[in-house]
Design a protein around this nucleic acid. Structure first.
Lengths: 215, 215
DNA sequence: CCATGTGAACAAATTCACAGCA
DNA sequence: TGCTGTGAATTTGTTCACATGG
C-alpha cells in the first residue's frame, strides 16, 4: 500500500494514505460535534456516531502523540487544532483549475465557496469561446497563460479536469511549470514524477465497482 | 480492507475493492491499446505503458480464469469482453442524480454523454427554482417525486450530490425506495444498510491528502 | 524460449486484548 | 472504573521466484 511522507521523502517515518484519509474524516466528524456544542468524546462514541472503528481511531491518533485522557476520552477543540495543523491545513495553498468544462466549473465553484486553505487563483481552458468568461469572480484564461500564472500566483496545486486525451500533455506542462500536487479527474494514469504528488479521482472506477456489486 | 461480493454475499469468494478498481483500470488501458490497433499484450508491456505492476496484473486476472497464453501474453479483444462482463457492465443500470447543484449538473452531463451501462433516468432537487428546468434532455424534478420515479424507472443506482446536512435523510429516502447502490459525494459517512452499497467520493479528503504531502 | 499462473515469502493494515493511567 | 495507548495476533494485500505449458 502507498505510504507517504511530507515533501516526498523527508520528515517522519511516513504516514499511510489510508490513515491520512481517515484523519480527514475524523477532523470533519469532530467539527460536527463541536458545532453541536460537545466538548469531549471517546473513541467509542465517535465510532458509533460516524460509523468508524474505535480501535482504529485510537491507533491513528496515537501515531502522532497522546491526545486523549485515559478513562475520559478526547478533548475536541485541541484535537481539532492538532489534526488541522497535522494535515497541513494551517496555511494557504493556491490552486489552479485546469479545464473549465462542467466538472471544472463545479470544482472551481466548490473550492471558491469554501474559506479554507485551498484558494482557486486561476482557471484555464483551450476553448476560445470560454476564455474571458467568468466562473463567479474568476476569469477563465488561455492554457498558454498557465505556466506564467502558476509562477506569478505561487500556486502549488492543480485540479485537472481536461479530457483523457489531453491529460498527459497538460500534466507535463504543469510539472514543468513546477506544480507540486495534482488532483487528477481524467481517467488516465499519469506518469509518476519526483516531487510531484498525484491523486486520482476516477468516477468510472467507482461506478464500475458499484456495477460489479449489483451483478 | 473491504472485500465484496456480487449481490452482497452470494457468488464467488469475494473480490477485494482494490482488485476491482484495478480491473477497471486494466479494462480502460486495454481499450486504449485496442484503439491503437494492438491485438496482443503481455503483462510486462501493459505495466510499463500504463505505470502498473506486472505480477499484480497477472494475479488479478488469474483470479477469474486463465485468460493468457503462456509465452505470448493476452489477446486483447477477448480479455476486454471478459472484464466488461465480469465487472457487470454488460447490462443497463438506470441511475438517478440527486441534487442539481453544479456538481450534480456536471455528473448528469458526464453520464448522459456516455453510451455505457449507466443511464441517467432522473435528476432531482429541492430548489423550486430549478424544478422543471433541464440538463440537456433531462428535466429536474422535485425531491417528492424521487421514490416514485425510482420505482417506475427501475433505477438501481443513485449519485448523491446534496449538501452534507441533507445527505443522511436523502439517503434514507433512497434506501426506503429500494436503491441498491449509492455514489456519495457528500462529505458524510452514511450508515451502512444491508443490501445497499455505498461508495464515497470525498473531495476534501483527497485535497487534504495533498495538503499533507506539501507540508 | 518466454510469458503466464501460482504457491510461498514478505509487507501492510486491521483487529484484538490488555496494561496503564486519570 | 473506564477509556486510552500499544504490542501481539490476525487478516489482507503485494511481491517474488519459479514451475508450467503453449
Amino acid at each position: 500500500m502507498r505510504s507517504v511522507s511530507p515533501s516526498d521523502g523527508s520528515g517522519p517515518p511516513g504516514v499511510s494514505s489510508l490513515t491520512l484519509n481517515r484523519l480527514s474524516v475524523y477532523l470533519r466528524s469532530l467539527r460536527r460535534l463541536q458545532e453541536e456544542g460537545v466538548q469531549r468524546v471517546s473513541s467509542g462514541e465517535l465510532a458509533e456516531r460516524f460509523h468508524l472503528s474505535a480501535p482504529q481511531i485510537r491507533k491513528d491518533l496515537a501515531q502522532f502523540g497522546e491526545f486523549g485522557i485515559r478513562g475520559v476520552g478526547y478533548e475536541i477543540e485541541p484535537l481539532i487544532d492538532r489534526l488541522h495543523c497535522l494535515l497541513g491545513l494551517d496555511c494557504r495553498r493556491n490552486t489552479l483549475v485546469i479545464g473549465a468544462g462542467s466538472l471544472g466549473h463545479a470544482l472551481a465553484r466548490y473550492l471558491g465557496a469554501r474559506r479554507d486553505c485551498f484558494r482557486v487563483v486561476g482557471c484555464f481552458d483551450v476553448d476560445a469561446a470560454k476564455i474571458g468568461t467568468r466562473i463567479d469572480d474568476l476569469v477563465i484564461e488561455s492554457m498558454d497563460a498557465l505556466a506564467d500564472r502558476l509562477e506569478t500566483t505561487g500556486a502549488e496545486l492543480a485540479v485537472l479536469t481536461v479530457p483523457a486525451s489531453a491529460a498527459p500533455e497538460t500534466y507535463d506542462l504543469l510539472v514543468r511549470a513546477g506544480v507540486r500536487g495534482v488532483l487528477n479527474f481524467a481517467p488516465v494514469r499519469l506518469e509518476p514524477r519526483p516531487g510531484v504528488h498525484v491523486r486520482n479521482v476516477d468516477m468510472r472506477v467507482y461506478l464500475e465497482e458499484l456495477a460489479f456489486l449489483l451483478r
